[in-house]
Amino acid sequence: MRENLRRPGFLPLYAFTLVLWLIVMSPFAVVVLGAFLQTTFLGLSTEQWARGGDGESLFSVKWFGYVWGLYRGTLLFSVKLALLSVLLCLLIGVPGGMVLARRQFPGRDLLESIVLLPLSLPGIALSIGILQAFAIVRGEWWLILAGHLLYTLPFMVRMVMDALRSFDVAALETAARSLGAGYWQRLRWVVLPNLRHAMVAASLLVFCVSWGEFNISFLLNTPLNQTFPAALYATYTTNSFQVSSAATVIFLGVVVPALMAIQWLGGGRGVKLEQGV
């Protein structure tokens, strides 16, 4: 840090970034505050605080109970979807990514660009496509899962491919072959151990993406199979800001730890430099 302070340009950059960061963070603080507030207004007007002091507590957790009662089904459904997305991404995306990264075959480049395509396409447009293409099975819960796969598989495949390309997997495999390792032994002892990190990080990311997916869930959902983000939208349009805040805090409570974990895993390279300063 002391070294940085002497470098010209560090302080202004740091100050600017800090301000931007505080602006980005502030709504989260307000939402958390709102979720626990009894008053119907935000802010500091004295009469509200006075009313809060009338014996009735200003803070309460009752909104969380309300949200839980109302949306328990959608919460569990979303968790189920997210977990299944992770499982299927591991089963489909890891082998797929390994083949894409290690093999050359006709159509390889095409397949890779198709797999990564959803990341750059507007979700609402694809949702309309799925809605129409699978109109006869609309309402089936697995259709929503399929839609989620469309947006989660690209992450898994890309992270697996990046991991495999970040080291010379071909040379390692050749070395393993020269030592007499067969195909499955190489896979088990050489390739997969080097992928473990990427798979964990990608699984967390897949969970987050599926948990927060709105476009496809919203258009394909039915009262029986409603995802939590779709329920969030309903809350935002019909409920008070405390209930909305409480629901949002529940949503964030799942996603934030997962994101932190990803950041921790992904930021492993910088560990040494950050310690001791």
Partner: peptide, 13 residues
């Protein structure tokens, strides 16, 4: 091994 991946994206994309 890449077939399931191809099938998913053919069907749903």
């Amino acid at each position: 091994l890449a077939l399931p991946l191809a099938v998913v994206f053919a069907a749903f994309l």
